[in-house]
Computed example of a mutant assay.
Amino acid sequence: MLSKTKFLLPVIAGALLLQSCDKKDEFYTTADGLTYKIYEKNDEGEYENKGKVSPEDTTGAKVGEVVTMHMMYKNAADSVLFDSRTQNQPIMIPVMEPTFKGSLEHALMMMSAGDSGVFKVNADSLFAKTFNQPLPPFIKPGTDLTFFIKADKIQSRDAAIADQQKMFEEQMKEAQVRAEKQIKVDDQKIQEYVKTQNLSGMQKTESGVYYKVNTPGKGPQAAAGDQVSVHYKLSSLDGKEMESSYNNPMTGGEPFTFTLGQGQVIRGWDEAIQKLKEGSKATLIVPSPLAYGEQDRGPEMPANSILRFDIELVKVNKQ
Rank of each mutant, 00 (worst) to 15 (best):
K4T: 02
L9C: 00
I12E: 01
I12Y: 03
G14S: 12
C21F: 05
D22Q: 10
K23Y: 07
D25F: 11
D25I: 03
D25G: 10
D25S: 09
F27E: 07
T30F: 07
G33V: 06
Y36W: 08
Y39E: 03
E40Y: 06
N42K: 01
E48V: 13
N49H: 06
K50P: 01
V53Y: 06
P55Y: 04
P55A: 05
P55I: 05
T58Q: 14
A61P: 09
K62W: 04
V63P: 13
V66Y: 02
V66Q: 01
T68C: 08
M69A: 11
Y73P: 08
N75H: 06
A77E: 15
D83R: 02
S84T: 13
N88S: 13
I91V: 14
V95W: 11
V95G: 12
M96G: 12
P98L: 02
E105K: 00
S112N: 12
S112H: 01
A113K: 02
F119D: 00
K120T: 01
D124W: 01
L135I: 04
P137L: 13
F138A: 02
I139Y: 07
G142I: 11
G142T: 08
T143F: 04
L145W: 02
L145Q: 05
K153L: 14
K153V: 04
S156E: 10
S156A: 09
A162P: 06
F168A: 05
E170K: 09
M172K: 14
E174H: 10
E174C: 04
A175W: 00
A175D: 06
R178I: 14
A179Q: 09
K181P: 04
V185C: 03
Q191F: 10
K195T: 11
T196W: 04
Q197P: 07
L199R: 10
Q203I: 03
T205V: 08
S207F: 06
G208D: 09
Y210C: 05
G219Y: 05
P220C: 09
P220R: 08
P220T: 02
Q221D: 09
A223R: 09
D226C: 10
S229I: 02
S229R: 02
H231T: 07
K233E: 15
L237M: 13
D238R: 02
K240W: 00
E241K: 05
N248A: 15
N248D: 15
N248S: 14
T251M: 13
G252V: 13
E254D: 12
F256C: 00
F256K: 01
G261H: 03
R267M: 14
G268H: 02
A272D: 06
I273W: 08
K277C: 12
G279C: 06
K281R: 11
L284W: 10
A291T: 11
Y292P: 09
E294Q: 12
Q295H: 13
G298A: 04
M301I: 15
S305V: 12
L307K: 00
L307Y: 06
F309E: 07
D310Q: 10
I311F: 03
K315N: 15
K315L: 10
N317D: 13
Q319K: 11
Q319W: 07
